[in-house]
Nucleic acid binder design. Sequence first.
DNA 1: CCGAATTTGTACCAGTCGGTACAAATTATA
DNA 2: TATAATTTGTACCGACTGGTACAAATTCGG
Lengths: 184, 184
Amino acid sequence: MARTINERADVVPLIAEVFREFGYEGASLSRITEKTGLGKGSLYHFFPGGKEEMATAVLADVDQWFERFVYEPLRQDDPASAVAGMWAAVDGYFRSGGRVCLVGAFALDGTRDMFSDAIDGYFRRWIEALRDALVRHGRGDKAATMDAEEAVFGIQGALVLARALRDPSLFGRALKRLQLRLGV
Amino acid sequence: MARTINERADVVPLIAEVFREFGYEGASLSRITEKTGLGKGSLYHFFPGGKEEMATAVLADVDQWFERFVYEPLRQDDPASAVAGMWAAVDGYFRSGGRVCLVGAFALDGTRDMFSDAIDGYFRRWIEALRDALVRHGRGDKAATMDAEEAVFGIQGALVLARALRDPSLFGRALKRLQLRLGV
DNA sequence: CCGAATTTGTACCAGTCGGTACAAATTATA
DNA sequence: TATAATTTGTACCGACTGGTACAAATTCGG
């Protein structure tokens, strides 16, 4: 019938927003069609696997972003500037606390079992990349692991709390605090 | 038809488990029926307001538990022992990372808007009670607030990460770390 | 400009959702 | 034991769920 300018890649971030806002179960196809402007025909053309494939695509998209702007720099760049870049990237990505972590949200309920590999990989590689940078910066192996874990779960908790209290500014405060703790 | 030993109060924790496991949207009445062994008739007898009233009751139950075993001691008991008691209570309540925070889970998706007062109050009173204890212990006002915030969002983030990585032991490590940070 | 491939809207499906109605069964009161 | 109040199972409701089928519209290759 019609050809719009939408490619699959253009739609993924829109679908991501719906998942972020309502969770996997709450993200109904009707809400997704509403947000994307695509009918079921187009949606199932792009994602023959339906809702599950949409979520997989969204998770892959998120993963790709972090891989490129966070993990890879942590592994390759100068440790100090890579870590500094991480805090900036994270603050930007989560809109200074106004946005929630989709992977963290999926992890909390039964959705996790559907996407456990993607969810596990996202956090594991984040922690490993950060630990790697800390070690290269001179921190001991054990301490670096703990520090990396603390930074990552600190970010997740700050997102939860900022949203629960409807106080995005808490996220910025928390990032500052975590940054100081890391001492890099 | 039948009279079982179930009182409303006995059913609430069971319903809580369903919400914890599947989230608000994913907790269907059929799952709740299955878990509790109660038919719709009984369920709507106890909770005329339906699913929403069940969630309200569950949140009130959680709140009551924390008020009694965490907030109240923090406000009234000797600061050092109350804070120590908090870590023990939290570790026990969340089953050393094997259990998720229902309030945190609700906070992350669209469910928050339905129960924002309960969610907001749970975290706000927790932080305030902890700050209060820290101040009585000699910490300055500003620093105590930051410390309290960090402890609470640290716990939340540790729960997210422990579940995401399927590694409950991470929660214990995190609690230890947060406890040291607090220095009480 | 024509035919093939792609893209899309719409109607429809069975299943499940939360919720209601109500009679039957059980318990409590006397 | 008779009766009133409580508790419960079940059938049913309209709405919505994710998903399928398919023909019409559009775009693209020649």
